[in-house]
């Protein structure tokens, strides 16, 4: 069990680094997805640990996966809309609010 927690901690740290340092919107999205996967890993592991037949953790992981899919769909739609307007997907260069 400790092993699982160590791995998910490492992955969470990697995702955090990605979110903090990357400038491209698509890579940011990937980093966020890494964070969500690290969390899902913990959910599944704890579902395995406590009352496995209730499956609460696995249900949570499935909900998480669905949310991640929604997030990707909306996020990528936003990225496309931003690219059409600004001609870039670098979040640092999207700097005016006027439409």
């Amino acid at each position: 069990m400790t092993l699982v927690l160590v791995f998910s901690g490492l992955l969470f740290a990697i995702g955090t680094y990605g979110v903090l340092t990357r400038r491209n919107a698509i890579t940011l999205l990937i980093s966020v997805e890494i964070l969500m996967n690290a969390a899902n890993l913990n959910f599944v592991a704890f579902s395995r640990l406590w009352e496995p037949e209730l499956m609460t953790g696995q249900v949570f992981a499935l909900v998480g996966i669905s949310i991640a899919a929604c997030e990707a769909a909306v996020g990528l739609a936003l990225i496309l809309a931003i690219f059409r307007r600004f001609g870039t997907t670098d979040v640092g260069r999207i700097d005016f609010l006027r439409g």
Binding site: G9, T16, Y17, R23, G92
Partner: peptide, 22 residues
Amino acid sequence: LAVSEHRGLGAVVAYAVGGWLV
């Protein structure tokens, strides 16, 4: 791609988060 100028800060924060979780 261009990389951010905040890489050092990001590494420190990520290291802290990861270290704490582990």
